[in-house]
Write a protein that binds this DNA or RNA. Structure first.
Lengths: 155, 155
DNA sequence: CATTCTATGGATAATTTTTTTCCTTTAGAT
DNA sequence: ATCTAAAGGAAAAAAATTATCCATAGAATG
């Protein structure tokens, strides 16, 4: 038997039971639910994580007049509201994703793609914090290696 | 009894037995040992990790005419040679450090400082790789929390 | 449902960060 | 000591990010 305890109105990319209500998600985070913001969240959701360029070209299909400044402004507002997370990986362009259940990333050395890896860093944090003179609260993990696709087709 | 197996000419920031021979380190990595490069490595070493701005103002004390382009060009060459590592942390400026023994970083939520955390990610990689459809080879870990300094002086 | 107030979007420009180009100088091999 | 490919410096260009200004649109209020 599995018990899913789902906090109300927390986005979880892995649980696509029903279409995501971006309006409610925005309001929960004290942000106005504008069409542009909904579009941004939608693009992030369909891509999992997204660069500013992909987001820009994607969203222009719906809002041809949208400006990059609008994207940056909104991304930062959503980051301040912890609704969006910035993902920085060495040698890669910055990615943005809807804040979701803890997970790691794999950056493929060969093709550069970034994949989500299901992992709970809680034990790592719990283990490290007492060893450190700092108070450790969370962990962001980026793995590097070779992705499934490259393994299959490559040597 | 402790046995230290130290690969020859690998930089290890933690082992300051003797002054680091940057010339040899550069040559080992097939890079010409120019004074500017030695200065860059020296600044990285004394700071542990460094932003481009700090590096620039630091190194100008020795090479007043050095240009930012020279820094970026060299950093990239050293990164290609795996002598330097780029550290990207969300909400922070990119840091550069001499590639050293595996370690994690702690980014303080309060003051923004970044500290090194001694940790060997090998077990994490070994544990995750078989669980994944990808081949996982290494891990970069960034912890967030509150650093010792802020803990002491703050609430 | 209309009105009002405030936050948002879009245009534009300014900053900041990073990369490129071109020419002179230098490290390191011969 | 000489030679040559690589490196440094100056300058500009390109890319990424942020700020400013004003018209407009959410959403709260009556």
């Amino acid at each position: 038997m599995f018990i899913f305890v789902v906090a109300k109105n927390i986005y979880n990319g892995a649980m696509n039971y029903e279409p995501i209500n971006y309006e409610a998600l925005l309001r929960t985070h004290q942000l106005k639910a504008t069409p542009q913001r909904i579009g941004i969240l939608n693009a992030m959701h369909t891509h999992g994580h997204i660069t500013i360029d992909t987001l820009y070209s994607d969203i222009k299909k719906e809002f041809s007049a949208i400006s990059l400044a609008t994207l940056y402004k909104n991304i930062h507002q959503m980051m301040d509201a912890t609704l969006v997370t910035e993902v920085k990986i060495a040698q890669q362009k910055t990615l943005y994703e809807i804040t979701k259940a803890a997970h790691a990333h794999l950056a493929c050395d060969r093709c550069g793609s970034v994949y989500d890896i299901a992992i709970d860093a809680t034990p790592l944090v719990a283990q490290q914090s007492p060893l450190s003179q700092h108070r450790i609260e969370s962990a962001q993990i980026t793995f590097t290696g070779v992705c499934q696709g490259c393994l299959t087709k490559g040597a």
